[in-house]
Write a protein that binds this DNA or RNA. Structure first.
Lengths: 152, 152
DNA sequence: CCAGATTCAATTGCGAACAATTAAATGTGA
DNA sequence: TCACATTTAATTGTTCGCAATTGAATCTGG
């Protein structure tokens, strides 16, 4: 007989908050896909564009800190965005170690086309804005606590 | 001047619940990594093992429905678990289309070694069980609403 | 001034994740 | 029965995500 009731079993899949988060992330990805296809972006590329729409001409490292991604992920992704003529990569003249990422005119223009994305996601969430904001804040707080123990 | 205050701007990264979920999933992954390294598992492999520890001798499709993954992801992953002698893949005799996944003795035994994982995650979450359960239920409900609109 | 440490991006290699296709087995209706 | 559709895994190709390493530029202490 099992040591614990399954609803309390810490090794049960449905009791894992990590799986809830993992599977929700994939569900978001699938909802975003058709919307982003029309923009010619993948979801991680869309996140990079959100960062750059707030402020561009920033080094790769800044984007990485914002999105919790490293150069192994960002370098090839940014090269693809450059190949799509959405960004320009130029080595900084003040510090030759840095590569600055700037939006092209097309990159700036895409922000307008992307304006319909968040409302579509909101609709798919089938949830009030205030509920979503509350959930977001809780999830961000959890994420930050997890990230805090990574260097323990 | 910007059209909206940034705290309300739907195109601002920090206002995206999807990014909260996405970045929390990666944070979980990083916390799990050192724990799972000792078991010789990656995080998605750990999820498959959680499914199989509940019930094994199941077709690939069942695992996929449980984890929201398809054969393109699972086939190579299961081959790696087989190479690690944790599962055995055998074609069903009743329905030759299906490949049944069964745990090996080592696969069963790993469940005991994995028992320390959930408490470590709980500790890293720095949060009460009841709060985590409440968050999990909210996230699962959101995930299910998102998945519901995928075939719209 | 300069040797050694640090920072930054790029690279390599591996394991997901998924779309699209393929091939084989099974199910179905006329 | 048998042509045709459906189901199931496997395969192929592209893109992430990260660990580990490399190499160049910059910083720092003596």
């Amino acid at each position: 007989m099992p040591r614990k009731l399954s609803t309390l079993d810490p090794q049960r899949l449905d009791n894992q908050i990590c799986f809830a988060v993992y599977s929700a992330a994939h569900a978001f990805n699938r909802v975003y896909k058709p919307l982003l296809d029309r923009l010619g972006l993948t979801y991680p590329q869309y996140l990079v564009m959100l960062v750059l729409w707030e402020r561009d001409d920033v080094p790769v490292k800044d984007i990485g800190e914002r999105l919790f991604l490293d150069s192994g992920t960002l370098t090839p992704l940014l090269k693809r965005l450059e190949a799509a003529h959405l960004v320009k990569r130029t080595r900084s003249s003040e510090d030759e170690r840095q590569v600055l990422i700037a939006l092209t005119p097309q990159g700036h223009a895409l922000k307008e086309k992307a304006r319909s994305v968040p409302p579509s996601i909101l609709a798919a969430s089938d949830c009030s804005v205030s509920e979503l904001v509350a959930m977001k804040d809780e999830i961000v707080a959890l994420r930050d606590r997890l990230n805090a123990v990574i260097g323990e």
